[in-house]
Design a protein around this nucleic acid. Structure first.
Lengths: 354, 354
DNA sequence: CTGAAAGCGCTTACAG
DNA sequence: CTGAAAGCGCTTACAG
């Protein structure tokens, strides 16, 4: 650890000098505080000469408005909170990126939070939002028991994204059941018979994706051997790796696997590869999310895609509308999905028909 | 788009009812505002009976303190800003995760920003930090021209992370030159001769990584054919893919490639694989960051590792100290690195010596 | 242990 | 077009 040069003289003086206020600027420009405020916010016309004097005073004093004071006065902070499950996961990271970019374009800052699917964290966030430091909250709940949203607690402006839906809040989501059904049907149509799914068990989105997996089988008149619903502890590459490794210790490799996220698929493929199985030659893999890693994975993944930017934009639109009018009716918006076909699925020639 | 049920009756009433203030709670409990404040903040002892009455009033009114008011009064928001280059990249996402988790443990919220390496964004952020909505700023600058930090502008509490260093601010970093030199030396020692590097040209961290690449060659008495310094537009998988594809169109595949990030390595491997080259059989690849994808990549990547959590913790420590004492001397802390050996490097038997 | 006053730095009516 | 007053909701001295 190296101690850097101590620039006490100049730098520090600048640093600790008390920040100038609107009054200071007004005094220097010889006008009232109101006029300075008008110049800054454009809230009322100001004569050119006055404006010039004010601008000069502003620059000389290096004035920066105190946002806490403004927030207190206006009842708005222009800051929103976005709570995602786990930023270290590619999906959350991409969503965070879109939220920050799009919110920034609207002059809104984003306080980012992680919930890890903990219901108490979510409750906490709701109450922080109520504490007015943020004007509203976009929340991606993981468990249905996130009952803070249900319990009739006083709600700040909030938009739910993802699979957990409460009619008392605005909501943006993807049809997880349908998407999963479609991608598993693709596997069935490609001639695969022993098809596994790999994913967590307790989250609502996992429940819906599993439902789609089962529906696809039911539609094809296929039973599902229970061991092919492979449980996974975490929504991550590590989780997929561990779950796949554990599965392979006791079972034959399946014909194909539907992993509930790309990250889990990438981990699972690593485990498969370590055990000597090649994708897609020995086993086909499909997944969900279409994060950038899916495209550059070896092999590139066939996966469920949806417009993440659009999802973010829609949530932001709903939140802004809710902030402006707390009493408007709630909306639930569905964002469409599609399947991107890449190289992780092999067509089995001459499928043995049941 | 489906319009959800309009729960106007109860829900909306709750929503728009004006938030209770400390005075409301005080009135209801029959005490002064000060006493309520004492109960909430533990700032002075309160008799058990009074406390009980206050707690009850607090609960009945669903009181939540107004953080803007508190921030204005205290001169602290307990919110910090963290500005990283691009959240969609795995490295920034992992860092963001650590910052949010560790800051949360200290009772600090994190406003996350992206700079994309734009100097003007960075200037803007500095001034927002001065605007007191956040108590301080952790900034990962990309270009040296980020002169806002240099220009003697009034600085809020700020900690720089990464390669760009200004003695007037606290700083946490990794020895990029040394790390790059070491990992390239590993390639040389493994018997590789035509070693390429792939990375952006204008960022400061790229400059340092390139310097390490050159040093390793110089130490081994090896010249570098200029075309083996492969330029790359973006710090991403896409960037690596495109740069590698463009390179392969005009040149023979190198013996080995040092990619400046794991993400670029993953993109480059995808391009290599598309062109029929296998890693590490035909070409070895090493990179930098050790994000989770590096471990599950095919093949798993040999890469530069460092403790990202520790980097985040150190930056947070420095920032807290700076907030508490703006006049303390600045520090620059170096976080150590190491190489994790995985399967992306092949040892060339019988290297032809120069 | 509790209360009444003052003020953090803005901006919104209200007068001129 | 500009100014003086009041108040957003807290908390910190200052008295009791």
């Amino acid at each position: 650890m190296r101690i850097g040069p101590d620039l006490n003289g100049h730098g520090e003086g600048e640093r600790s000098r008390p920040r100038p206020t609107l009054r200071d600027v007004a005094r220097r420009a010889g006008v009232s505080a109101k006029t300075v405020s008008n110049v800054i916010n454009g809230s009322a016309p100001v004569s050119p000469e006055t404006r010039l004097r004010v601008d000069q005073a502003l620059a000389e004093l290096d004035y920066v408005p105190n946002l806490s004071a403004r927030g207190l006065r206006n009842g708005r902070s222009d800051l929103i909170a976005v709570a995602l499950p786990d930023l270290a996961s590619a999906y959350s990271a991409e969503m965070a990126h879109h939220f920050i970019t799009l919110a920034g374009e609207r002059g809104l800052g984003v306080q980012l939070e992680e919930t890890y699917g903990q219901a108490d964290r979510e409750t906490q966030l709701l109450s922080r939002a109520n504490a007015h430091l943020v004007d509203g909250l976009i929340l991606n709940p993981v468990r249905l028991e996130t009952s803070a949203v249900q319990r009739g607690v006083v709600l700040p402006p909030v938009v739910l994204i993802g699979e957990v839906h409460q009619p008392i809040a605005d909501h943006v989501w993807i049809d997880n059941v349908g998407a999963s059904r479609d991608v598993v049907a693709l596997l069935i149509n490609a001639g695969h018979r022993r098809i596994a799914t790999l994913g967590p068990t307790r989250a609502e989105s996992a429940r819906q994706r599993l439902e789609g997996f089962r529906e696809a089988h039911a539609n094809a008149g296929r039973p599902i051997p229970p061991e092919l619903e492979i449980p996974c502890q975490e929504w991550s590459g590590h989780g997929g790796f561990r779950a796949m490794t554990a599965f392979l210790a006791d079972h034959d490799v399946p014909d194909a696997i539907y992993c509930m996220t790309d990250a889990m698929a990438i981990g699972a493929i690593s485990a498969l590869s370590g055990a000597g199985f090649r994708v897609p030659d020995d086993v086909s893999v499909v997944s969900y999310d279409n994060v950038w890693e899916a495209r550059f994975s070896q092999p590139p993944l066939t996966t469920i895609d949806f417009d993440k930017r659009r999802l973010a934009r829609t949530a932001l639109d709903l939140l802004s509308a809710r902030i402006d009018d707390p009493s408007r009716p709630t909306q639930s918006v569905t964002v469409p999905y599609s399947i991107v076909h890449r190289q992780s699925v092999r067509r089995r020639v001459a499928p043995v028909d049941s």
